[in-house]
Each structure stands twice: as structure tokens, then as C-alpha cells.
Computed example of a mutant assay.
Amino acid sequence: MSTAQKTRTALVIGGGIAGPVTATALHKAGIQAIVYEAHAELGEGIGGGLALAPNGMAALDTIGVGDAVRAAATPIAGTRMAIDGKIHELPSLAGVEPLQIVGRGDLHRLLRERALEAGVGFEYGKRLIEATETADGVEARFADGTTASADVLIGADGVRSTVRTLIDPAAPGADYTGLLSFQGYVDAAPDLDVEPGMMTFAFGKRAYYLYWKQADGRLTWGANLPSKTYMSLTEARAIPADKWLRRLRDTYRDDTPGHLLADRTTPDTLDITGAIHIMPPVPHWHTARVALVGDAVHAPSNSTGQGASLAIESALHLARTLRDIPNPATAFATYETLRRPRVERITKRGARTNRKKTPGPLGRKVMHATMPLFFKLMNFDKVLGWEQRYRIDWEAPVR
């Protein structure tokens, strides 16, 4: 293939969120794609849930899976902030659909089903170890000794991306935020009366947490446990769940309803979801025939509520640029120009929010005093409207 010819085939590395969406969007753009996933089967290691913002849902609508995700999700139309038990109502953004909370396993399954329906192929147990570029394409080599070739290769392999280091051995890795993440599930009770469709962000005396009611009536809560020691997901899950529960119960013992949520969570209803990461700016997003998408290149902290949505957006933009620009290197450069300013701005917002998750006694007093005035003066539409109202015009040509 010469550099003047249209991209026709792609290898997509990673079968989580960005990978299947990228492959589906590529097929929509007329480019054949196969997804290669390192794990042996769908859903291995998946736990907890995630939020999809209105902009992310709009992007999923573009590839025809939005309604299926909504059917599996819990809509959150309102939010509150609790500081030492005192509740502050947060402004809402008018004219957008609710935040959708969906289980990671459910989302992965739905994205895979839509990709298969679109004609995407999947290969499991394929851990990438090398990618070799030529003038006409790229060849991937996997740990099992097999190889695969295509016009381009897309790295959708998460915060610990192999593709990122193949593009640039000096590329930065994901930063640890100092927080470990857990998600628990408890039955509703009179002393745990939570309004449906409402999410509460709570600043406890020792740690931040959040909680909401699922469509089935159970309460879900997420804990952000401060930890100076970094732990990988594998390391965190090697510790028995009942030991983590003892630590969570001690951390939230003076918080309401934090202590109730922690006390009523059992080892069977606790998901250990691992360290919370945030990606620093990545200097090199691509080479001539290899590019990054999703958490592999931009992973804002979970404080933004935008991680998955930004990955989905980027997947669509990457497909659009390859559809409309014959030279892959030029297409990738255009894709980076389209995406870098937006994702880095949102990542910076998440970093600021992370620093506020453990305010301490003095910090909580300041928050109590300033929060009502802050919300009164804040232009919510100006702060978050540009994020959530963002829409991709799939049909518009990329130049």
C-alpha cells in the first residue's frame, strides 16, 4: 500500500471499551478491523461500574449501541455534595440527558456484541509484544508466537499500554493519585433512604466516598481510600476482601451514612477495583502507522466522570480521520490535533478535584463556609456545559 492509498485494514489492540468502539467506528468508516485482547476471555478482571456522560452517550448513539447501554444503566439526573453530613444541592445542567451508571462487565459485553454485529473480529489470549512498521503497513507479534498484519495498528490497551511504549520507549506511564478504589453493594433500608436518580458525593472525616440507588433498589457506594503505597489491581485483589472491609469500616466509622454502607457490605458484595490513575500529557500519540486511543493516551481521573466518554469520542474521531485522509500519518496527526486540547483540559480539572478529596478538618471547615456561595456564583453551564454538550458530526468530512 502506498501512502496515497486509503486505509483499508486495522489491528486494534485491547478489548475493553476503546477497542471495540474504535473497531466498530472503523467498520462504519469502511475499514476492516480485528480486536486483539490479551486476556483469555471477555470480562476477565472486570469489576465495578462507571459513569457515561451525555457526550459519551451521544457518541455511542453514533455507532448504534446507545439505547442498549441505557437499558442496562441507572440514570442519575441530580447530584448532591455532603460534607460531614451537611448536604448541598448541586446545580444541574439543563437540556442534556442524565448521567448513565453502568457495570463495566455489562458495558464490555454490549460493546462487543455491537462490534460483532458490525462485522468486527475478536481474538483472545493475544498479548502484544512487538509491532514492526514498513512503508506499506504494520505487523504485530504476540506472546503466543503468532503475527498479524494490517495497514495500521491502534493501541487501545489501557493505562499500562504496551503500544504507548512501542511508539516511544520514554513515554510517561500513568500517575498514581494516592487513592485506591472499591465499590460495594448493600440492600436499601429505612436508615439508608436514598432518593432514586440522585448521586451524593461525600467528604468524610478521613476519606471521600459516593453513593446512589440502582434500578433494582440496592445501594451502590464507591470508596476512594487514601493509600501512600501504590498497589496494582492484582496486588490489591490478593488481599482478602474481609481484610479490606475492616480497613474501610475503620476509615468511615465516623461518617453517616458512610459507616452504614461499610458495615453492611460483605466480602461477596465488595468489588476491589484498584488504584486510581491519571495520565500526564503523552508527548507522542502516534507514528506513521501506529496510534493510541482511550486510556492508553488520555486517562483523566474518575473525578471527571469523563474517562470512558472521552475514550469513546476519541475512537470515533480516529475512525473519521482515517476515513477521510488517505495518508495514515497525516490522519493520525489530524486526530491528535482534534483531541489533545479537549482531553488535557478535562484531565487538569480532574487533577484539581483529586486534591480536594481529602481536605482535612480545616479544609472541611473552609468548604462548609464557602460551598453555598460557590454554588450560588458558579456558572454551571460555563464550567461543564462545553464538556457534556460536545457532539461529533460523523458525516462531516475531516480535512
Rank of each mutant, 00 (worst) to 15 (best):
A58T: 11
D271A: 14
W394K: 02
R323I: 03
Q5K: 15
R355F: 00
T229P: 04
P341I: 05
G294S: 01
R289T: 08
A331N: 02
P267W: 06
T334R: 15
L166D: 10
G307S: 06
F122G: 00
A369G: 12
L384I: 14
I167P: 04
L261D: 03
D268C: 05
V293T: 05
T256V: 14
N302F: 14
G294D: 01
G45I: 04
S181L: 13
A71E: 15
G95A: 00
I101W: 14
A189K: 14
L316D: 06
L166A: 09
L128T: 04
T134S: 15
G204N: 01
A170W: 11
L11C: 00
I392M: 07
L116P: 01
T79I: 04
R206G: 05
L42V: 10
A72C: 11
L179N: 10
V152L: 03
A223V: 14
E41G: 12
E195L: 09
Q5Y: 10
F332R: 03
P372S: 05
A315Q: 00
R339T: 04
S309V: 08
A23F: 02
I154C: 12
L99C: 13
V69Y: 06
S232P: 07
A40L: 10
L362R: 08
K213D: 04
N379M: 09
N302E: 10
A72K: 13
W221Q: 01
L322F: 00
A333Q: 07
V69I: 15
M371L: 10
R389D: 10
A308F: 06
A72E: 12
D67I: 07
I17A: 01
I46K: 06
A71H: 13
T134F: 14
A71G: 12
T234K: 15
V297E: 12
A296M: 02
E117N: 05
W394G: 09
Y36P: 02
E387R: 10
G14P: 00
T273I: 15
Q100T: 03
R109I: 02
V293F: 04
A71T: 09
A72F: 09
R289Q: 02
N354G: 11
H27S: 08
A236E: 14
T200Q: 08
Y230I: 02
A241E: 13
G14C: 05
L373I: 09
P281T: 06
P397N: 01
G95V: 03
A115L: 01
P372Q: 03
A288I: 04
T134E: 13
I46H: 08
T256H: 12
A275D: 01
G155I: 08
E139L: 10
I346L: 01
